[in-house]
Amino acid sequence: MTTGNGQQRSGTAQVITRTSDRVRPLLEVQDIYAGYYVGQDVLKGVTIKVHEGEIVCVIGPNGAGKSTVFKAVYGIIPVRSGRVLCDGRDITNIPPQQALQTAGITIVPQLRSVFAQMTVHENLELGMFLSRDKDRIRERIEYVYDLFPRLKERSKQEAGTMSGGEQRMLEIGRSLMWEPRLVLMDEPSAGLAPIITKQIFEAIRRLNAEIGLTVLMIEQNARQGLEASDRGYVIEVGRQTYEGRAEELLADDNVRRAFLGG
């Protein structure tokens, strides 16, 4: 944990105990240490909880280790100490395929991740790569088309020829194919125009309201990210220094000065 300092400061953005805090969280990152090279941990004790149906946003400066949290949860880099629990089950260091299959966690990475020379339809199909049930795949594609009618219009188009915002929609749509319990979104606003960013956050809120999608996201764009979220965490130099409800973080003087531009 972040020692007294973090506790004290997070006290200013008081942690409100909600009813959901008493039930078991869907995802629980317990005091993890992880990094890319042995002996150089980027994360030095990060604890995050996400409850079913919640949108949680992680903010913090560049290089603080935000993306590293996701890579550790998804099994792309090893966790050296601490645990990751999904629904109470230990999923620390499971490979990505298993994160998908056993825990139902999908990820929307920060960099463009569509298969650029495949059609929108093929991209969605690949979201269910681990399933061989063709009827089910068709069903899920229709489901995603219902959520994003734009994707249906573009069904036969090569993904790489779509606009940045549409590609982001496709990435989110593809992540929903596997009927995930939790979607990790790494900077959904990265590289998008402000108006498109707004649409993406609206889409995330809408999915949350319509299908109860649980989202843990990282945002560089702290204000918009928090505005779209229920709760937030601030990570600095590998530790979380604040946590609280989104509106409280938005109102907190320290957080405002550091991340929201005053």
Binding site: Y74, L100, Q101, S113, V114, F115, A116, L126, F129, R174
Partner: peptide, 15 residues
């Protein structure tokens, strides 16, 4: 084809 076009994304969908 997926792995050729985007290695990271291919890993993410479980390939």
């Amino acid at each position: 084809r997926a792995a050729a076009q985007n290695r990271e994304a291919a890993r993410i969908v479980g390939i």
